[in-house]
Design a protein around this nucleic acid. Structure first.
Lengths: 336, 336
DNA sequence: TATAGTGAGTTAAACGTTAAACGGAAGGGA
DNA sequence: TCCCTTCCGTTTAACGTTTAACTCACTATA
């Protein structure tokens, strides 16, 4: 393994000088020496040892992507296309800027802190909803933190999310414009502060804006997996006069559509449905799903941008970004 | 930050002793001292600094997941559910065993080597197909390497994959049993040594096994994205007497189904189609897709198992695992 | 001529941990 | 008494890098 020492020896200078050249602090090094050093680095194939760097400089160039789970079950957070697509973007942009991406699932604040100190992590991305206790643990940290789709606010913690309220409002209004009156809202169980809650509020507001009384019995909760949606479907079918469903996520909508079809309910003839997210699946189901589009790639790159700004120590322009959404009309909504 | 030194001071022993206790090399330490040290570790909240460890011990507990790309384009490798689900499993099992997962995209062997030396990476997972030159670069490495879905062979490099040939053979035979004779094979462009090639061979063999002459004009290539599939669809439609299609991946099959439907081709009435992989999407498209099932979670956990075996220095039981596949009959195949 | 400033470096310590080599007291056997 | 073990440690160096504080030869200025 070739080290800075080897480069120093070959070029006849000290380690410090080599280090300075490598790190661009070469204002006190002659142009000729710089060239000699750079040549040697290329020739010998020198690559910096990040561990040694991290040890001495307290900065590791490691960025953590944290998957916060409440219970450590076997569920695979990567099954969710959001996380994965997001991580793909993250990896690319971080790499282009000299950073490294580590994935980590944590269940408790202690686990998170241990991870941070294990590696001197320079910055954190988060998805998932927090319990307050967990969020409080984040507060004393000084490294940049970017939360994705979390409706929590704090001064030094950034946030990137969507117009969840607006999107859901648009979707619901769209159904109302098409003559629907009795509209259900289906979602995973939600708490104050999550995306799902915002989407629920959008649904509710759209109803009242159109003088349709809000009926709590039309709000149904279920997990997003196929089996849960099957059960949900059984709850949905008996509801009298129901003509439309707003789903808080496309996956749910798609699973629901499949289950409904199996039970002989045809879409959109018997029931209209709108989703949220516009994942690639939405175009491919039958009928193609009318949904609220979000640009996941943009979300990823904006999130990294926020992170990099803070890492470089610049004064961040914004600490709260809300990305626009767009209603995509396909064929899962019928005009009454 | 609390270090080993602090623990040593508090408990009145040397750093070495603390280190030994932490690492379980405590056969020369009295039970009472061990307890004192462990108590102090808990009390002070000591967490090891992995960088320091890596520096001195040449082992970092970092496992790299390498996404090898030929050209550094903007495509997001995480869009492929295989990679993401696989990575999710990886993270979990590695973490449970005290390892850390770093994601990295590399385009060249040099980039890979640099990454390895940056972090003293302990082991590598790979997906994607290699050019031989790249594979040759891997050969001199001594760390454990696990390749996923790569048909290359070497003594010290492990491999985990599927019965691609068999799966494709099953799918094609299934079509033939149902009376189909003119069957197309659609796939991304493939080279010798990849999964797609194996799947192609299975298709071809099934034909000849059933005395159906292989017709090269029925083998069509296209990328897996929607636009490419649309184009592919246009090539498919004019083929006279075509009654069935074998797709080398579900994503392609799903995209194709959507495009075909838009062009007025109904499935399975006008055209039967089978996929490969059984991703979650397959159950949700209309009609539900008949496909070849693989257990991605199993694949992930087997891959980690192979890795861990080698990391712990045990003699590995196997260096080549081929996981079974299974034909899942849904509704995209019609009996002629 | 004395003083300061500048260009081009160097030396030494430090980061937190581990590994190799060494030490010293207590007990046992000849 | 002397030597050998065993038990329970310690001391010291090393890993590769950065950083703070120095050095030393010139040049420019007053």
């Amino acid at each position: 393994m070739v080290t800075i020492k080897d480069i120093a020896q070959v070029t006849g200078v000290s380690c410090t000088t080599v280090s300075n050249v490598i790190n661009g602090k070469d204002h006190r090094v002659s142009a000729e020496t710089i060239e000699r050093i750079n040549d040697a680095i290329k020739e010998l194939g020198y690559v910096p040892n990040m561990s040694a760097r991290a040890l001495v400089s307290n900065s590791s160039k490691v960025i953590g992507f944290i998957n916060h789970v409440v219970t450590k079950d076997d569920s695979n957070f990567m099954e969710d296309p959001f996380h994965s697509v997001f991580i793909g973007v993250l990896e690319r942009v971080l790499r282009e800027n000299g950073y490294y991406l580590m994935l980590r699932t944590v269940a408790t604040a202690e686990e998170l802190m241990a991870f941070l100190r294990n590696w001197n992590v320079d910055g954190l991305f988060f998805t998932g909803i927090f319990k307050d206790a967990f969020f409080d643990a984040l507060a004393p940290l000084t490294i940049p933190i970017v939360l994705v789709d979390s409706y929590v606010s704090d001064t030094h913690i950034c946030n990137i999310g969507l117009e969840d309220f607006k999107g859901s409002h648009m979707a619901t209004s769209h159904l109302i414009e098409r003559g629907h009156q009795k509209i259900a809202f289906v979602s995973p169980s939600f708490r104050e502060g999550g995306v799902v809650h915002a989407r629920f509020c959008g649904y509710q507001k759209a109803l009242t804006d159109n003088r349709i009384p809000f009926d709590p019995s039309l709000v149904l909760e279920a997990e997003m997996d196929f089996a849960s949606c099957k059960q949900l479907c059984e709850e949905l079918i008996p509801i009298p006069d129901l003509t439309a469903v707003v789903a808080s996520a496309d996956i749910m909508a798609a699973n629901l559509m499949t289950c409904l079809r199996e039970r002989g309910v045809s879409i959109p003839e018997d029931l209209s449905i709108v989703g949220f997210d516009d994942i690639s699946l939405s175009r491919v189901v039958t009928p193609p799903l009318t949904t609220v589009h979000q640009d996941m790639n943009l979300k990823g790159s904006m999130a990294v941008e926020m992170m990099l700004e803070r890492l470089e120590g610049n004064v961040p322009k914004k600490s709260n970004i809300t990305l626009p959404v767009q209603l995509i009309q396909r064929e899962s909504v019928r005009t009454l």
